[in-house]
Nucleic acid binder design. Structure first.
Lengths: 148, 148
DNA sequence: TATTGTTATACTCTATAACTATA
DNA sequence: TATAGTTATAGAGTATAACAATA
């Protein structure tokens, strides 16, 4: 065992932060999965709708944003299309490309989802006062800052 | 639109906290999935090992802790068993019950996993100073407090 | 009767490999 | 040759329904 260094990092057991972040992440994912399930959606479909909310995307872009193989996107989008949530369009710029966009139905579903997720996550933070919530927001934004 | 109430809750847009928590949860889950994948494990298997680290559990207890159907646990445990990670034992108290426990191999795998997850999560928080990390830990522990 | 665990079945999600069409 | 997307295939994960054994 190496002796503790007089570092700024030695204040508190880092394991507590790790545990707290991991536990929180599972709690939040549960909120997301529950909200999705209320509308008969999977978490994967929820993520797909989330990405397409602000942009039209090519299949390969979806693969990149979701961190999945292109062949996985084919199925994900096909199932969403079958349920009337997205639409495929040939890319005007690239004869090989396919653009995916949300349908109106998916947009209204998205509003309900956002509401449900918001409620669930806010409920998680119910034990915090307004000042604490603001501090937590600021700290998490620092954490996520370099996540793209 | 209802007028803003002079409530303690009206300080900051709650949507920012929701977004920050959701984004953070995905980042942490990615760390977990990556760590698991490095050892050829799925996130579900990782969670199973996590639960069994501190206790032996009956199949029905695993179902409750993981929030899954009992029939799903059968497959999860069977695949873990086939890979030498867990062992099934008849319950001494209940002729119907089956107890599940980790093998020595799973325990050493768990040590490596914990190390990798710790590194990844700490890296996520690399933008924070020691004081900020401590504050974040305290706030997240308040959030997770009522999560069991 | 109720509970524990399993089986059969079906679907979603995901990856790898091979293919077609376009660039 | 390289890239975009699909297909075929395989496996993990999950749920529902039906079942056997035990409580």
């Amino acid at each position: 065992m190496t002796p503790a260094e007089p570092d700024q990092d030695a204040t508190t057991d880092p394991g507590r932060l790790v545990d707290a972040l991991v536990q929180t992440s599972f709690a939040v994912q549960q909120v997301l999965a529950d909200a999705a399930a209320e509308h008969d959606l999977s978490l994967a479909q929820l993520r797909l709708l989330g990405i397409l909310r602000d942009r039209t995307a090519a299949m390969s872009e979806l693969a990149r944003h979701l961190g999945l193989d292109r062949s996985s996107i084919t199925g994900l989008v096909s199932r969403a299309e079958r349920r009337g949530l997205v639409r495929r369009t040939p890319s005007p710029d690239d004869g090989r490309g396919v653009l995916v966009e949300l349908t109106a139905e998916a947009r209204s579903l998205g509003v309900a989802l956002e509401r449900d997720v918001g409620r669930g996550v806010v409920a998680l933070a119910a034990g915090l006062g307004a000042t604490e919530r603001d501090r937590l927001t600021a700290l998490l934004e620092l954490v996520v800052e370099r996540t793209y």
